[in-house]
Design a protein around this nucleic acid. Structure first.
Lengths: 342, 342
DNA sequence: GGAATGCATGGAATCGATTACATCGACGTG
DNA sequence: CACGTCGATGTAATCGATTCCATGCATTCC
């Protein structure tokens, strides 16, 4: 592969001049510029990004460490992150932590070794020493979706409290009184917050959230299934199961179906995180939708701000309730809500 | 951030010795080794992968250019690719082409600039000059899922012909005679092959595939919807719609539902590519399942073989039919087939 | 006309690693 | 005892870019 030296030789100039042409530095004669450009074309020359990065100490690359790529919510997040980054002239390297702290650490370490310019993380746990060090050590960093309390890093996330209140109002209005939740891992902020929001919303209606109605999940489908089976085995099973993410809702659906029961006739179901498939499930699932694309784009903007020396602020966007049929009573008000928005 | 020089100074040795310790070269005294290791620990030193790559001319990174990350099939493929690559000591940079040749080219170019060691591609089109050049120019490369005919690059894919025959047998057995297909882009191998396989299978039963029953899609949900609407508008609509990928099946489901029709009562539906959500749709969708994880792993192995100087062979794995309820007649034989395999 | 200014250009240092080659001392052998 | 061998180590070149500094030349201004 041709290097800058070959181009210089072919154009009859020094490597310095070639470099200047490539970075369009003003001080190059038109003659030299055209000769260099011709040589570049002839040799099919492309600058070696590795060498450039070594010298300039910037890779124009962002790292994204995500909790679980197979979760459609995170897939969409990753997609929007890559799009916005590309628009700003950055590439993205994605690391899939699969909800495992050790894998998360592995990816953070590799990304740091590669000297990425900035790091976008949705932490799987309370934060490894490695990540804490990185944050303190000056690596530009932004948390997205989840965050680690007490670390001075901007957070881009959505606030589901209002939407959870709407959901509980909806459920209460349908006559449901025994409401249960499949929680996410307590080590994650979203895991804790969604339970808290749910409990607070219930309190507004004078409803209690007994310990037996809080099942510990891990944001994966299998745990949703397991917890739901536990709920169904209770002497007094809940009337509604609220899953703290879409995969656990899927597991819950499996569990209900495996018992030969029907949603919402025998038990109602709602989920945090709306995904396009929920329109097509049997029945369509009522869910709380985050503005995923917006989150991804805002996170990249905040991170790039940091990378390029600007402040880079936290962002909180509201989530909203999308009513479908999984809690009973079809949404008579506005059928358009049921359509996929693609 | 500490460099190898700092470590050398702290340990009282030369950078060469530090490098030897790090790459465990035999010729280092035990005393020097321990001093270096101590310095590494003290300084929290991590070798700069950029500098190392420049010198050694290898990045231990693979590029994966995928047609569409939002398609669960490709998401799963990407995940298995990353896993296998990690096991072999490589990182993966994913580029999402979104079925757009220009984006595909953009990613290939960036990856090449970054001097990735090898490239895994599921081409969106017949092949840009850029990719052809890269293939000829010695960049280790492997095609996965789709490929470009006439290019000397190993292909890792699955053969759906037998499964398509099984599907047509199943449909014929259920009494369906008017079968239509939503095809993928003619520029892709999978787009063409699936239509061919379908036509051939129909021929075995003396059935024809009229032009009106072949709708041109682009592997995206919206095209599935559009094509299906066209089918439903026909004076004699088909009894079955076979979508050449899962997203177009989703669009077809939308279109059918929008008319107030029911699957499979009014029209049957089948899809290429099985995804976990098909278990939960209304009704569960009969699909052809590829061994996605195996494909991803085999592709990485083939690519790494090439990168490391070994031959690297093509692999073809069989797909299989998974019968559910979207074509009529519940699968009485074996209810286990209906369960999600997680 | 001479000094000053500015532009175009090239030489060489530099980024942080790896590695060929040189050096040096210890040891074994004839 | 002299010489060859081998292991441990350091010096310096190298990868492919960017960029500081010096130089040469033309233009401008007094």
């Amino acid at each position: 592969m041709a290097s800058i030296k070959d181009v210089a030789a072919a154009a009859g100039v020094s490597v310095a001049t070639v470099s200047r042409v490539l970075n369009d530095h003003p001080s190059v004669s038109a003659a030299a510029r055209t000769r260099v450009l011709a040589a570049v074309r002839d040799l099919d020359y492309r600058p070696n990004a590795v060498a450039r990065s070594l010298r300039t100490d910037q890779t124009r690359t962002l790292g994204l460490v995500i909790s679980d790529v197979m979760n459609p919510y995170f897939t969409e997040l990753a997609r929007s992150v890559e799009e916005e980054a590309r628009a700003l002239g950055y590439s993205v390297i994605i690391g899939n932590a699969d909800e495992r702290p050790d894998l998360q650490d592995h990816h953070v370490r590799t990304l740091l070794d590669r000297r990425i310019d900035g790091l976008l993380v949705s932490p799987t746990d309370g934060g490894s020493p490695l990540m804490l060090d990185a944050a303190r050590g000056g690596t530009p960093m932004v948390f997205v979706d989840r965050w680690i309390p007490g670390v001075d890093v901007p957070v881009v996330r959505s606030d589901g409290r209002a939407a959870v209140r709407d959901l509980v109002a909806h459920l209460h209005g349908l006559g449901h009184r025994r409401l249960a939740i499949i929680a996410g891992p307590a080590a994650t902020t979203t895991g804790r917050e969604r339970v808290d929001a749910f409990r607070e919303a219930l309190a507004l209606y004078g409803l209690d959230l007994p310990g037996a109605y809080v099942g510990q999940g891990d944001f994966q489908a299998e745990s949703g299934r397991r917890v739901t089976e536990g709920f169904l085995d209770l002497p007094e099973p809940p009337e509604v199961v609220f899953a703290a993410d879409n995969l656990m809702a899927l597991g819950a659906l499996d569990a209900v179906r495996a018992r030969g029961l029907r949603v919402p006739r025998d038990i109602a179901l709602a989920a945090f995180d709306d995904i396009r498939w929920f329109v097509h499930t049997d029945p369509p699932v009522t869910a709380i939708a985050q503005p995923t694309g917006e989150l991804g784009r805002a996170a990249v903007r905040a991170l790039v701000d940091r990378v390029e020396g600007r402040p880079g602020a936290s962002v909180t966007l509201p989530a909203r309730l999308v009513v479908r049929r999984s809690c009973g009573a079809p949404p008579a008000e506005n059928p358009a809500k049921n359509r996929s928005t693609s």
